[in-house]
Simulated assay, not measured.
Amino acid sequence: MPMNSSERFFAVTIDLLGLIGFSTFVSSITTSMTQLRSLSQAKAQEDYDLRLFLHNNSISLELKTAVMNFASSYKHVLKTKTDYGSIDVICNLPLRLQRLMLNEMYFPIFRRHPCFGSLISLDQPFAEDLVKNALSDRALHKGEALFLTDDLAEGMYFVANSSEMVSKAPLLCYRRLAVEIDIASGQWMCEAAIMMEGWRFRGDCHAHRRADISVLTTSKFLNLLGKYATAGSVAVTFISHYAALFLETPPSVEAVLWYSGIWSDQAQAEAMMLQARDAAGVTVQRGNAPFRLLWTRSNLS
């Protein structure tokens, strides 16, 4: 029991601090439980609305089961790291800010490839158009297939998990016959898909772990080339020379990987970029970061 005014003051202060701390703790728990309850109610309402829709429209039991199974798996679909479409503020940014944000999101990915990195300094509006209109994103679960042999290629793939793209841990595994190639953040695959119409995958690719992929869609890429060719863009001339060199130069990888999703290494891509630059008569600023060996063998039997 407090014996004097100082002890009474100390006891009252401790009681008040304890009361405030306990109240804050209880309040945070209550807020968290309320948020969880709201999320659960929203999910329950979505399920109810879907079931009611299927019932009111006399959907067959077999199709109803298939739809409900898809709805269950859809909840677990990965969002990409650049899934800004679900953020209202980002979607409603002024066009100038949207353009700057897309540039900072995707230009570091492009810069890892000598040809596309060169386009940024050669014709930035063209590079910005590629980012805005020809690039899309995918997110893969561990073990999920990115593509399979003989499937028609949708475009070229850039692996883009890290914003700084310095992670060395493999994200994807490309397999062709007895050869497996580990692919890490900052690397690319299937460049031939945007150089050759109707190109099909010549190998399988699966995710080692969660992987974010940026896809340069072939049809949209070709549409942009046509648009800028009409405008007389020097970028189109540069890309045309690069594509010709790409198709004429023997691949720099081992024979079993020739003309596959792993067509050339970074050194060869850099050399072709320099030749294309000279052939097009343009000056391309090269980045200060040193290029590293692109492909790493994980297994050869």
Rank of each mutant, 00 (worst) to 15 (best):
R292C: 12
S298G: 04
A44Y: 00
T82G: 05
K79Y: 07
E144F: 00
E197M: 00
R111G: 01
D204T: 10
I87F: 04
E154A: 03
A184P: 02
A153S: 09
R210A: 09
W188E: 00
T237I: 01
M1E: 08
A271N: 04
Y242I: 02
R112M: 14
T217K: 11
L257N: 03
I120S: 04
R138P: 04
N161S: 10
A211Q: 07
D212R: 03
W258E: 14
L222S: 07
L78G: 00
D129R: 05
T237W: 00
V166G: 10
Q187N: 09
M33C: 02
D278W: 13
F238P: 00
D151F: 08
D88C: 02
P290R: 12
A211N: 06
W188K: 01
C190L: 05
S121G: 06
Y228W: 08
T13G: 08
A193C: 04
F158I: 10
M101D: 02
A153W: 05
N223G: 04
L300I: 04
N161T: 09
I262S: 00
L54H: 10
E62A: 12
R292W: 10
E46T: 09
A229T: 11
L17E: 02
I20C: 07
S32F: 13
T24F: 11
L225M: 15
Q187A: 04
L50W: 03
M1Y: 03
S28C: 05
L225I: 10
I194M: 07
Y174W: 04
Y106W: 11
A139I: 09
V12N: 11
C115T: 01
G85N: 14
L50R: 11
F126R: 08
H241W: 01
V159I: 15
A267M: 07
I87K: 15
R37V: 01
R202V: 06
A207H: 05
A71Y: 08
A244P: 01
R297I: 15
A289H: 07
E270A: 14
S252D: 03
R292S: 14
N223Q: 15
S264Q: 07
L50H: 08
T230N: 06
A279W: 06
L78I: 11
V26M: 10
K43G: 07
S58Q: 11
L257C: 03
V234R: 08
E191F: 01
T249D: 01
H206F: 09
F291A: 15
S301D: 13
Y84W: 13
I262T: 03
M165G: 10
A42K: 13
I194S: 02
I109V: 15
T31F: 12
D47G: 00
V236D: 02
L140C: 05
D49M: 13
A244F: 02
L93V: 11
L300E: 07
L95T: 13
F110N: 10
V282H: 06
E128R: 06
Q124G: 10
H206V: 12
E197Q: 08
E191A: 05
D129F: 02
G155A: 06
D49G: 01
M165Q: 15
H55A: 14
L257H: 01
N299D: 10
D47N: 09
K142S: 05
M101R: 12
M195D: 01
R112V: 15
V234H: 08
A44K: 03
I20E: 05
M196Y: 03
S86E: 13
V215E: 09
D204Q: 03
I239D: 00
L274M: 08
H208Y: 15
G226D: 14
E7G: 02
F107S: 11
E248F: 08
A71N: 12
D88A: 12
E254A: 06
S252K: 08
